[in-house]
Lab assay of single mutants.
Amino acid sequence: IGSLMYASIFGNVSAIIQRLYSGTARYHTQMLRVREFIRFHQIPNPLRQRLEEYFQHAWSYTNGIDMNAVLKGFPECLQADICLHLNRSLLQHCKPFRGATKGCLRALAMKFKTTHAPPGDTLVHAGDLLTALYFISRGSIEILRGDVVVAILGKNDIFGEPLNLYARPGKSNGDVRALTYCDLHKIHRDDLLEVLDMYPEFSDHFWSSLEITFNLRDTNMIPGSPGSTELEGGFSRQRKRKLSFRRRTDKDTEQPGEVSALGPGRAGAGPSSRGRPGGPWGESPSSGPSSPESSEDEGPGRSSSPLRLVPFSSPRPPGEPPGGEPLMEDCEKSSDTCNPLSGAFSGVSNIFSFWGDSRGRQYQELPRCPAPTPSLLNIPLSSPGRRPRGDVESRLDALQRQLNRLETRLSADMATVLQLLQRQMTLVPPAYSAVTTPGPGPTSTSPLLPVSPLPTLTLDSLSQVSQFMACEELPPGAPELPQEGPTRRLSLPGQLGALTSQPLHRHGSDPG
């Protein structure tokens, strides 16, 4: 009997000691992992102490058991019943959930998450997105703005933001810190809205009876308010094209079509300037034949640059190039080494500058006005007194259609001029006259002087055409309008007829 009692007592005591040691061994194993994590990542002392304290409290609170892992091991129907039991206190005593059906309560219970916070733990920081609604079931918390405590909340209090009033989550206007050990039930806004969409009859009752104890939403960050730039940057990543407008005076608003859609830094370009900076079609017209890549860069430059609305530039004389043409100036200075066709295309550029300027006046029909002061630039669209967005969009579309028509007509005119030049060069190729044979009589004449090349004649003739079109064909006081194609086609051969009437002889060394 004594040996039996000794064996039973010894066996029970050893089993008890073994169970104690097993729990202690698990605790030390998990604690060792936490300390190894702290050492590996070199976490500083204040945060390291918070980690160790939280682990110790969580171990004593749950005995080292992962409740979520245990809950996920059950089937979904059983999980709903378990969640309904775990959140029964909240669902029974909170006013917004009263009167809900059994199915609605089960769906809500599945969406709730339980959070346990030790003292000093910050649940929400200032500036964080308010993605959830919090219900306090135990403990107390404090809300701070800077170093000032603005509120202390306790059991059955609710904090967050009214989700039904805002389409997008706002930002917190303060820090939420736990004063004691707290148990909180939180539900994400997407989950709550999903359940309320499934039960629309409960939705009206819920929003009407929901009383948020403390609204954390920062009202200064609401979209459309003066301080909402940061919020707009976070939620409006896919922005449309940006529009900046110059201020319109009362006198300017009476004149229709007073602005032109141009790229940034293009205030001095012609009315047909689009795409790359520098001139019509993204580059100076005089350098068009020598740089074919300008047409390839036109599309990307047009689509990537934001639109700006600026006044037209001052008018340019008909014979003056659009500006920024070092290529043609070098050719004029060193005409001995340049291609003979460069002079002809220089005359073509003069005609283009004249036609572009006159067509700009035809479509816009307003006098040039000086540029406004820099303080009046970049007025935002949302400022008071601005035109409605639809009106601005319609004006932009009208300007775009005008620019497209202008570009089409300029292309047709350019093709006409090039065809005339090619026809003239085919009839009378460039050549130098040879020395004529002296006559049989004693009164022999001296050799004839060489005839100037055709490109120079073409430049003079085209300059005469531009001056003739600019000065004589337009009646005084009438708006400057571009001439039609047949009129220009008839004027060019008439001007060139006198020049080509002389018999030109080919030089023996000319390969053409």
Rank of each mutant, 00 (worst) to 15 (best):
L129I: 07
L129H: 12
L130T: 02
L130V: 09
L130A: 03
L130P: 01
T131C: 08
T131A: 08
F135W: 12
I136F: 01
R138I: 04
R138L: 04
S140M: 11
I141S: 01
E142F: 01
G146T: 08
G146Q: 06
V148C: 09
V148K: 11
V148A: 10
V149F: 01
V149A: 08
V150E: 03
V150A: 06
I152A: 10
I152K: 01
N156D: 09
E161M: 01
L165M: 10
R168K: 10
G170D: 01
K171A: 04
S172I: 01
N173C: 12
G174Y: 11
A178Q: 01
C182A: 06
D183W: 15
L184E: 02
H185W: 04
K186I: 10
L192G: 01
L193G: 04
E194Y: 06
Y199N: 04
D204Q: 05
L210Q: 03
L210P: 01
E211G: 05
E211R: 06
I212H: 01
I212C: 03
I212M: 07
T213A: 10
F214N: 03
F214L: 05
L216M: 04
R217E: 02
R217C: 05
T219L: 10
T219A: 12
T219I: 13
P223F: 05
G224S: 11
G224K: 09
S225Q: 11
G227T: 11
S228A: 12
S228W: 07
E230V: 08
F235T: 11
F235G: 12
R237D: 11
Q238S: 11
K240G: 11
K240W: 06
K240F: 11
K242Q: 13
R246W: 07
R248F: 10
D250F: 04
D252A: 10
D252M: 08
D252H: 07
T253D: 07
T253R: 11
Q255D: 10
Q255A: 08
G257Y: 09
E258D: 08
E258R: 08
V259K: 09
V259W: 08
S260T: 13
G265M: 12
S273N: 03
R274S: 07
G282C: 01
S284D: 15
S284T: 15
S284K: 06
S284Q: 05
P289N: 15
P289A: 09
S291Q: 14
P292G: 08
P292K: 11
P292M: 03
G299I: 08
R302K: 05
S303C: 07
S303T: 05
S305N: 03
P306C: 13
L309C: 12
P311D: 12
S313A: 13
S313V: 06
S313H: 06
S313L: 11
S314K: 09
S314Q: 11
P318D: 11
E320R: 08
P321T: 11
P321W: 06
P322H: 15
P322T: 04
E325W: 06
M328F: 04
M328A: 10
D330P: 11
K333T: 07
S335F: 03
F345C: 14
G347Q: 15
V348Q: 13
S349V: 03
S349Y: 05
S349G: 10
F354G: 10
D357Q: 09
D357S: 11
G360K: 07
Y363C: 10
Q364P: 09
E365C: 04
E365L: 09
L366W: 12
R368N: 11
A371M: 06
T373Y: 08
P374A: 08
P374D: 10
L376Q: 11
L377K: 03
N378Q: 01
I379Y: 03
P380L: 03
P380N: 05
L381E: 10
S382L: 08
R386F: 07
R387G: 07
V392F: 15
E393H: 14
S394F: 07
A398P: 06
A398R: 09
L403Q: 04
N404Q: 13
R405Q: 05
T408F: 03
T408R: 10
S411K: 12
S411Q: 15
A412P: 03
D413A: 03
M414E: 01
M414P: 03
V417C: 15
L418N: 01
L420R: 07
R423C: 04
T426P: 10
T426E: 07
V428F: 01
P429N: 09
S433R: 08
V435P: 10
V435L: 13
T436P: 13
P440F: 15
G441I: 05
P442V: 11
S444D: 14
T445E: 10
S446P: 07
L449G: 09
V451A: 06
S452E: 14
P453W: 04
P453R: 10
P453G: 10
P455L: 06
L459V: 12
D460Y: 05
S461C: 09
S461M: 08
S461W: 04
Q464M: 13
Q467L: 08
M469Y: 13
M469H: 12
M469P: 14
A470V: 13
A470C: 14
E472K: 04
E473W: 04
Q483M: 04
Q483R: 08
L492A: 12
P493E: 06
L496A: 08
L499N: 15
T500A: 11
Q502D: 14
P503N: 09
L504E: 13
H505G: 11
R506M: 15
R506I: 10
H507M: 09
H507I: 11
G508K: 07
G508V: 09
S509N: 04
D510R: 08
